[in-house]
């Protein structure tokens, strides 16, 4: 299979068929899948397939229990979403995403400049800077939130720290890649007018960057909303706290289902909003 084939044409010309790498790649991928699958299967619990229907029913239908005399209607199911508890948690989630997005995207500006090869020409600055940014970016938001919670206690502040750091990392990378792709002509022109680097940046790079920057901001806000929804699970405030508190109770699970539907609606609205803004910017 690995050998290359040689064909001899009637004219006498010999054509060597290059060997097809696709099969090798597929083979390696499948082998890796089998190996990782085997490893994963070493650590498994007991399969209870019938539970799937039960739990989905508990999540997505109003609670019914003869033993506790709970007979909720669909109205009860959705009216939970109107309680003050949900409103506060939802606001916390939005706050964490908004403040985190703003803080992160303001902080990222100087760092993005320091990472840009075409503005900072010194290798000793932009290489270590990029390394730091890459280190920051290895940390998932949830992991940062875990550290923040054990450092400063539960609550939305931990969530804000987590979303800020996450936004900072990803925005810096996106921005410096964008800056490096920009037209540097105006920057040069401004320098030839006697402007210093800061002035040249704000009068040539910044106006070119602004629409992209706003687009990235909105995009990050969307990601942050999606993540802050579950950040509460580790105690960082928001809807996640309620999800965690109600997931284990047999008769409160329907609340989680209702929240999931709420999240779905919010994400869809947010996506439409992001798309609208990005369309406007172009």
């Amino acid at each position: 299979m690995l050998a290359t084939k040689t064909y001899t044409l009637r004219s006498g010309a010999k054509v060597k068929q290059p060997f097809n790498k696709t099969y090798i790649v597929a083979l390696i991928a499948i082998l890796l899948f089998v190996a990782s699958g085997w490893l994963v299967l070493q650590n498994k619990g007991t399969l209870k397939l019938n539970e799937l229907g039960t739990i989905l029913k508990q999540l997505f239908t109003p609670t019914q229990s003869d033993a506790f005399n709970i007979h909720h209607t669909w109205k009860d199911y959705f009216s939970y979403l109107l309680t003050a508890e949900i409103r506060e948690a939802l606001l916390d989630t939005l706050r964490m995403s908004f403040v985190g997005s703003v803080v992160g995207s303001v902080l990222c500006l100087p760092f993005a400049i320091l990472c840009s090869q075409n503005i900072v020409k010194t290798k000793w600055i932009y290489v270590p800077m990029r390394f730091i940014i890459n280190l920051v970016r290895t940390m998932p938001t949830m992991v940062i939130a875990v550290i923040a919670v054990s450092l400063i206690g539960m609550g939305p502040l931990a969530g804000i720290i987590a979303t800020s750091i996450f936004t900072f990392g990803i925005m810096t990378k996106m921005l410096y890649e964008c800056i490096e792709a920009l037209d540097m002509g105006p920057f040069e022109a401004l320098q030839s007018c006697g402007a210093n680097k800061t002035q040249a940046f704000f009068y040539s790079i910044f106006p070119q960057l602004l629409p992209t920057y706003i687009g990235y901001f909105v995009y990050n806000f969307e990601i942050n909303v999606r993540t802050s929804v579950v950040l509460g699970y580790v105690g960082a405030g928001g809807l996640g706290v309620i999800i965690q508190a109600n997931m284990d109770g047999l008769y409160t699970r329907s609340r989680v289902g209702a929240i999931l539907m709420l999240i779905f609606v919010i994400v869809v609205i947010l996506q439409a909003f992001t798309r609208w803004i990005r369309g406007k910017l172009q």
């Binding site: 037209d183 002509g185 105006p186 040069e188 022109a189 030839s192 007018c193 009068y203 040539s204 106006p207 070119q208 602004l210 629409p211």
Partner: peptide, 12 residues
Amino acid sequence: GMIFQSFNLVKR
């Protein structure tokens, strides 16, 4: 003053 071939204006 300096003038460039590609004008080097901020287009936006």
